[in-house]
Simulated assay, not measured.
Amino acid sequence: MTGESLIGNHTTGTAADGGEGAAGEVARVFAEAGVVGHLHARDLADDRQVALAADEQVVIASIVKVLLVLEFARQVVAGVLDPTERVVVRAEDRLGGWGVAGCADDVELSLRDLAYFAMSVSDNTAADVLLRRVGPDVLPLLATELGLERTRVVGGPRQLLETMLADVGARDGAEFARVFPGLDAERVRAMRVFDPEHTTSSTAREVTRLMALVWRDEAGPPSACGLVRELMRHQVFFTRLASGFPPGVEVAAKTGTLPGLHMEAGVVTYPDGGRYAVAVFAATRGLAARRIDVDLAIGRAARVAVDALRAAARD
């Protein structure tokens, strides 16, 4: 695992005491969990940062839904989309996973409820339907507008699923479900969804930049950024970033998961007003999608980084 460390001002690049210690402690957390990790954390007050392998390209999976919902919110504020517009999600729309994909019947809901499900339970079907209304070609343009030069968006949830089916030679989701468990790790990791050069990807540093832009109302109109922040506060998963922080500390975040890849990005807000954008990516040797030990390591690594930033601010 390669890495870098810095606690200092991103503009000047000057480091404060403790930077190497924080990155080293983060690296130890990852090593104890048996994962290859990438982390970036930034203090939104002064842009001090803690980084470990933060400029390496990584798969971001469902974290891209933050960009999707941001674009949705911007179009709502601009009057392009009506958030109360009703859509029907039918059987052929379902992609599997959480949310409306588990419904037995057609579901009618509003665009803003699609955004809610996409963010709160990472509903792939809701995100895919919403992407059709937002425009599938808009997200790469938004990333460019926001200065996210290392962020690449390759289609939406349906395109990623179709890529996975093609890579294993499956005709549909049912056949994929039968074939996938029998694949060895080498075959799985050769799939395009695991290659940052062939799927939606970014860097930990750019992901925290996106979070900072949203929290500073610099990613669009304040009301649009506010909607994204509110929806991120409704995420139901709490075993990753949130697990590292005590009660009273707010964590608004978005997860991303693929077999062997566990990630989360968000903003941690303390009662004293301190705000810290954090992005953590962990890759395991095995391919299990559920690893509570890895989730908890993500929380511990985030806490180490944020504690270092808070200590640096007090010095």
Rank of each mutant, 00 (worst) to 15 (best):
Gly3Phe: 11
Ile7Ala: 10
His10Tyr: 08
Ala16Leu: 12
Gly19Ile: 05
Ala23Gln: 10
Gly24Asp: 04
Phe30Asp: 00
Gly37Val: 09
Arg42Asp: 02
Leu44Thr: 12
Leu44Lys: 07
Ala45Phe: 10
Arg48Ile: 02
Ala61Ser: 14
Ser62Pro: 03
Lys65Glu: 11
Lys65Phe: 11
Leu67Phe: 08
Leu67Ser: 13
Val69His: 04
Ala73Trp: 08
Val77Phe: 04
Gly79Gln: 04
Val80Phe: 05
Thr84Lys: 10
Val89Ala: 02
Arg94Pro: 10
Leu95Phe: 13
Gly96Tyr: 08
Trp98Asn: 14
Val100Asp: 07
Val100Gln: 03
Val100His: 04
Ala101Met: 02
Gly102Leu: 10
Cys103Leu: 15
Asp106Leu: 03
Val107Arg: 15
Leu111Tyr: 00
Asp113Gly: 11
Ala115Met: 12
Tyr116Lys: 01
Tyr116Met: 04
Ala118Trp: 02
Val121Thr: 02
Leu130Asp: 07
Leu131His: 08
Arg132Tyr: 00
Val134Met: 10
Pro136Asp: 12
Asp137Leu: 11
Pro140His: 02
Leu141Ala: 15
Leu142Arg: 14
Leu142Ile: 11
Ala143Asp: 04
Ala143Asn: 01
Arg152Gly: 12
Gly156Thr: 06
Gly156Met: 14
Pro157Leu: 01
Arg158Asp: 13
Met164Ser: 15
Leu165Asn: 05
Asp172Cys: 09
Phe176Leu: 15
Pro181Arg: 08
Ala185Val: 09
Glu186Val: 15
Arg187Asn: 03
Val188Pro: 09
Val188Ser: 07
Arg189Tyr: 02
Asp195Asn: 15
Pro196Gly: 06
Ser201Gln: 03
Ser201Lys: 05
Ser202Arg: 05
Ala204Leu: 04
Arg209Gln: 14
Val214Tyr: 06
Trp215Asn: 06
Arg216Tyr: 02
Arg216Asp: 07
Asp217Asn: 15
Glu218Asn: 09
Glu218Ala: 15
Pro222Ile: 04
Ala224Met: 06
Val236Ile: 07
Phe238Arg: 09
Phe238Thr: 05
Leu241Met: 07
Leu241Thr: 08
Ala242Arg: 13
Gly244Trp: 00
Phe245Glu: 00
Phe245Val: 05
Phe245Thr: 00
Gly248Leu: 10
Val249Ile: 08
Glu250Arg: 14
Glu250Ala: 12
Ala252His: 04
Ala253Phe: 00
Gly256Tyr: 09
Thr257Lys: 02
Thr257His: 04
Pro259Phe: 02
Gly260Cys: 09
Met263Lys: 03
Gly266Asp: 04
Thr269Gln: 10
Ala279Gly: 13
Phe281Ala: 01
Ala282Cys: 15
Ala283Val: 03
Gly286Gln: 10
Leu287Val: 10
Ala289Pro: 10
Ile292Met: 12
Asp293Gln: 06
Ile298Tyr: 05
Ala301Gly: 15
Ala302Glu: 09
Ala305Thr: 01
Ala311Gly: 13
